[in-house]
Write a protein that binds this DNA or RNA. Structure first.
Lengths: 146, 146
DNA sequence: GGTGCAAAGTTAACGGGTAAATATTTGGTA
DNA sequence: TACCAAATATTTACCCGTTAACTTTGCACC
């Protein structure tokens, strides 16, 4: 691939993730309009815990592509909201396991629906084949850049 | 488009912009390794000023897809680095025009080269046709979500 | 058993994004 | 002229991402 094949300006929006930012902002707005007072980042933690409860913070780092320090603060905030709690692992005392509380349960259905609806709106008019190409390209870009 | 055509989990990385985050992080690292002490966000402002100097803050909002408050703080920081300066518009006293200083000049060539190199590495093994599809999809996602 | 290293998590400092409230200026209009 | 609405920019408060330094714990190895 030559140095000049792609113009910087054209790819600028890709670098800055304009499209994904727009989707995230929209989803955040939909949460707020529905009276759900959580951020997208907090929701992404809950999302993984709904799939598998009791993950360690380190495991949440891996699954959400986040830093240890980010996870610490995210869990701090979600715990303050009463949606999760840290429980020290009995096997390894370095490890905190993060468990959902009962208060988190009502959020699951509502946020899933809003996320689905938001993604469907975002992907209006885009074919399944195009989605597959985007996913494939993203995977390679991620591998090339990580 | 049915509600179940796309699985949330598969699109999760798109929502969170994992790929674009990885590219941005890599570019930031390349800047730092080259001794360039500016952030990607600061660079994005300089990038637009190198194309056209003396833009208003509002115009920078539009071109960088950013909030007014973000621009205010970004310009604060870049101004503190001595790379730009605010000059009040004579036509409209509400407006600040942002001008590059001489100190910003040496950055232009170096950052352009690093940005080009970073993008080329990120896009290794990706065809021109795929790029076009991604850009087209992103444009529609952005329009659908903004 | 002590030493040293790696892993998990916390903290602080800095930069940036967003929302809401505020001030200033402009321009139109009654 | 007086008033009002819109545009530009700032400020504050809160949240998140990254880095670097640090603590605690586990483990391997001599």
């Amino acid at each position: 691939m030559s140095n000049n094949q792609f113009k910087r300006g054209e790819l600028y929006s890709v670098i800055n993730g304009i499209a994904s930012t727009a989707v995230a902002r929209r989803l955040q707005k939909n949460f707020r309009n529905a009276g759900l007072e959580i951020t997208i980042e907090q929701w992404s933690i809950l999302y993984h815990l709904w799939k598998e409860d009791g993950l360690s913070q380190q495991e949440l780092c891996t699954r959400t592509f986040r830093d240890k320090a980010s996870i610490t603060r995210l869990i701090d905030n979600i715990e303050r909201l009463g949606l999760v709690e840290r429980i020290a692992s009995k096997e390894d005392r370095r490890v905190n396991l993060v468990y959902l509380t009962d208060a988190s349960k009502p959020l699951q259905e509502a946020t899933y629906n809003l996320a689905n609806q938001t993604m469907n709106e975002a992907l209006q008019g885009i074919s399944k084949e195009e989605i597959e190409i985007v996913k494939s390209v993203f995977q390679r870009v991620y591998e090339n850049s990580k």
